[in-house]
Amino acid sequence: MWRSLASNMLTFLVVGLFLLVGVVIWGQSQYTAQGPLEDAICLRVERGSNMGAVSRELEAQGAVRDGLIFRLGADYTEKSQQLKAGSFLIQPGASMEEIVDQVTRGGASTCGTEIVYRVGVTQTEARVRELNPSTNEFVELVAFDPTAEDAPDVFAEKRAQPDTRYRIALAEGVTSWQVVEALKAMDMLTGEVAEVPPEGMLAPDSYEVVPGVARETVLARMQEVQQLRINAAWESRQDGLPLDSPEEMLILASIIEKETGVPEERGQVASVFVNRLRQGMRLQTDPTVIYGITRGQGVLGRGLRQSELRGRTAWNTYVIDGLPPTPIANPGVASLQAAVAPENTDFVFFVADGSGGHAFARTLEEHNQNVAKWREIEAERANN
């Protein structure tokens, strides 16, 4: 009898063991298998949350089939205590294993709210935007002047969220003074700016920053990026250019940047200035005159007067020979590349053509014809 009972107990234990192993194997397969999510979602993990709350949210949004397996998998891999706060973009079909890895890895949030400070040539604008997981594109919630006294309520609301990201985007052609003034208005940054960085030495780009970072640190990062770009452009320059140093290249690039916003034109605009330098002609470009008046501190906001075109400043290329002494703005990569690789043309003149671009000419006669056409366009616009 006892022998029979022991035999039965052993059988039950063996069967139970096999069942347990089967359950474990099944659970592991569920943990690593493709998940049921059909459309991407943005999973927000609050500070102080836990895997239980996360698993329930994932179940509610249809990202996992079984929250218990999700929690057990996180426990088994010893990641339950590594949960990070933030907003995470969960892709369609993501497995439980992939989601656990994502929410415990840390780093910057991959979705949610982003506040972008766009430093432009004429104004600085703050934009609050949120990622739409289904399209993987940002939806703008509000745009406003960050120096205004009354910010939109949604701005304060989103700033209060700990996982909101911040980005500073510099447009091509901004001056260093404009950048510093814009940074001063961003109250999530800290510290004073001892002096305005040299003109041309801040790289137009998009920079992710964290609240509390020093303004000087942000400026140093912008200078580091620009120096790398300057070095790379100078190394790739064409032979025979009338440029003796990276500094002269940077000056020319800044003039190209201010003369045209049409990407396809940069090489032609560069060729005009390079041809003029080679022939000993004055550059005669309005943006340099404007810089001589404003020193890059704000926008002139009106047309140039004849007295200003004739007035002598170190930057007035109507009265000085060659390049001005400093850049007149911060040029982007495309303008740096145009300065060292201009198109091969005979152009020495250009004027606006009414379409946002320019008409180029080889001779003064051609140029005068183009100017006459531009005057007609100006007159028509003034009468409408």
Score class of each variant (00 low, 15 high):
Gly280Tyr: 10
Ala270Met: 08
Ile256Phe: 07
Arg167His: 01
Arg215Glu: 03
Arg276Asn: 07
Ala63Tyr: 00
Tyr207Leu: 04
Glu378Ser: 09
Pro204Tyr: 02
Ile25Pro: 00
Asn136Trp: 00
Thr260Gly: 05
Gln306His: 11
Phe144Gln: 04
Val348Thr: 12
Ile290Lys: 05
Gly356Glu: 08
Gly212Lys: 09
Arg118Gly: 09
Arg167Phe: 03
Leu283Cys: 05
Gln238His: 11
Thr363Ser: 15
Thr345Cys: 00
Gly322Ile: 08
Phe350Ile: 06
Ser80His: 04
Asp286Leu: 03
Gly354His: 06
Gly267Ile: 01
Glu140Thr: 13
Thr190Ala: 14
Met201Glu: 13
Ala53Asp: 14
Asn132Val: 13
Phe18Trp: 13
Val179Pro: 08
Met51Ala: 08
Gly292Ser: 12
Leu17Val: 12
Phe350Thr: 08
Arg3Tyr: 10
Gly311Ala: 15
Pro152Leu: 10
Phe360Ser: 01
Ser55Tyr: 02
Leu58His: 04
Gly48Ser: 11
Glu114Tyr: 06
Leu183Pro: 01
Phe88Thr: 02
Cys111Thr: 10
Ala6Met: 13
Val333Asp: 15
Tyr117Cys: 02
Val14Asp: 00
Gly267Asn: 00
Gln28Phe: 14
Phe349Met: 07
Ser80Glu: 09
Phe138Ser: 07
Val119Glu: 00
Ala338Tyr: 07
Leu141Asn: 06
Val269Asn: 06
Ile377His: 12
Thr260Asn: 04
Gly73Arg: 07
Val213Leu: 12
Thr122Met: 11
Tyr318Thr: 03
Ala379Tyr: 04
Arg310Ile: 00
Gly112Leu: 05
Gly73Ser: 06
Arg118Asp: 13
Thr288Arg: 10
Val348Asp: 00
Asp353Tyr: 03
Arg266Glu: 02
